[in-house]
Nucleic acid binder design. Sequence first.
DNA 1: AATACGGGGCA
DNA 2: TGCCCAGTATT
Length: 349
Amino acid sequence: MSFSGKILDWYHQNKRTLPWRNTIDPYNIWLSEIILQQTRVAQGTPYYLRFIESFPTVGHLANADEEEVLKLWQGLGYYSRARNLHATAKIVVNEYKGVFPDNYKELLNLKGIGDYTASAISSICFNEAQAVVDGNVYRVLARYYGVDIPINSTEGVKYFKTLAQKVMDTEQIRDYNQGIMEFGAIQCSPKKPLCLHCPLNNSCVALQKGLVEQLPVKLKKTKVRDRYFNYIIPIYMDPKENYFTKIEQRIGKGIWQNLWQFPLLESKKELELDEIIFRYKEVLDDIEVNEFLEFNESAIIHKLSHQHLHAKFWIVKTNSDFADKISMEKLKQFPVPVLIADFIKAFKI
DNA sequence: AATACGGGGCA
DNA sequence: TGCCCAGTATT
């Protein structure tokens, strides 16, 4: 039996029941694919369910505020996905009359939809013969065909897309595409693949050559950058003993775009209390300070793919009634990075 | 052709 | 700790 035939057989026997598997509605498939970019099924599933509940149709999503979309996305990371998701929903509603494009080429023009996602949507929803090439597919093909071209090189991207197109089942592309990804996730996994009882184990090149552990080949990623974040958190208590603080939206380029955070003083190295006292006015209005409190004695190391953030939180108690202050209740409604959400959760007056 | 972009799970 | 995850956009 052919490679694709065995993948299809395996899939029909081993497919998981997932919330987006009972539909071929482009809205549902699109949403699931965006959520699952660089994200495990286990992590993305609850987000998918909450999105579908909050926004049953692309129209509901298009009519939402970006703030609401980001809040629902909070904790999932790669927030450009959420911003592009919202932008694309508006385009589908306003320029496509609420109907998604029904082919790979047009889907590719939408924000946040690249080769993989356009292939996934066009094949799953419209049976277009476009092979998906995600992390699972790279691994399965590299091992089965014994390919050692780096999967993240320009040559590798082209080579594997061509190979994927060559070996796919064009007649059953909907199941085949999901099948090869599922096979990569469950059977041909990155660590400890289940080669012993694999339906492809008599023809897998990597298994025959003992190269399963070495494939796929991936170029080294760049080193991480260390940054030092000092969050300066004003706390104001009004005459009724309600507490207020201040929060700002991140603008411009870089991480956490359009999410919210406390006034931030970034430094070249970790700062001491006297330096905070000396410099806090760089990020805070000139307020009368009652007391400085060091919330965490040792910096919290918040690790991202490309940055290690050394975060310290400084509480500034004040008697000055400042502008734009918000209550501690309202604070919880803002979309914030996990680093900030964890602080808010832990913070007590 | 490289790099930026999150957060979590696993050996 | 390092690697990986149903990748895309920007430089």
